[in-house]
Write a protein that binds this DNA or RNA. Sequence first.
DNA 1: TAGGACCTTGGAGTGCACTCCAGGCAAGCC
DNA 2: GGCTTGCCTGGAGTGCACTCCAAGGTCCTA
Lengths: 153, 153
Amino acid sequence: MIESTPVRTGRPGPCVSTPPPHPRPDGQDRYTISEVSAWTGLTAHTLRWYERIGLMPHVDRSHTGQRRFTNRDLDWLAFVGKLRLTGMPVADMVRYAELVREGEHTFEARQELLKATRRDVRARIAELQDTLAVLDHKIDFYAGARRAPERTT
Amino acid sequence: MIESTPVRTGRPGPCVSTPPPHPRPDGQDRYTISEVSAWTGLTAHTLRWYERIGLMPHVDRSHTGQRRFTNRDLDWLAFVGKLRLTGMPVADMVRYAELVREGEHTFEARQELLKATRRDVRARIAELQDTLAVLDHKIDFYAGARRAPERTT
DNA sequence: TAGGACCTTGGAGTGCACTCCAGGCAAGCC
DNA sequence: GGCTTGCCTGGAGTGCACTCCAAGGTCCTA
């Protein structure tokens, strides 16, 4: 799990209120794959797979060809983790990553994609709250049935 | 929130307050698999598969061996659909179905299972709301960047 | 009583998101 | 130099939740 702190910022401020704390400051941020694996909770396999399918925005390499991830990569992975939580298919995340690679002229397309995702997330939350009502109801039923078993049919 | 019927019955009555409207009243409820497929949105394949893995509480058969689903089956499938929305693995739903088959002495176990599910759902909603905040923030960023592109770095 | 739509079964196939493997390179330590 | 640990690659394997297939039986309408 990436997120340990579910800090809810009720109103999004102009700048990030809780930036993800990086293990090392910018300048000394050259993480090996296993460090990133530990930080993100993703396996090294998955990180390599993400790169292969185009979900990472170009990862640096050491002089011997080993991956060296930066703080920007960690930020990206944290964001990808959020998108993953929404249930977005990996293919769509790759699409977003492509837009990022293509440069600033894709801002509008990116915003549209995120807006669509936001709609999906809102719908999903509504669904879950609906389900929550059903669960509450059933749990109440079992509570009542256990208090007064003779009334149960 | 998009709650259509968040009707919370503080005390669980013997019957649901807003019962899912069945296509036919009790007594004439002998649906073929394709009728159930149309009503639930699940394919006939999936319905048969549900039965095979033990997720259905014994489906009736016609004298020639064809499935005849009842209103109770529709209710069960609607509930299973809710559980599915929560992301609960099918194996866990099968576990719940087993408890139901075992009779009333499993009320406590069933309630525990549902309470655990409720915890999961609440956590999931919190995660999604967290993600929503991130999405809002990014969308705002793109909106700002598009209004004032010269400020974008 | 013929035709077509619908139903049955066991088992095989699909798509997604990983997950692992084999074989090999490289760096650090005694 | 030998050993261990970590990393590399392409490709194969896994688990889940369906999804489909082939071969055949059933139901309904004309």
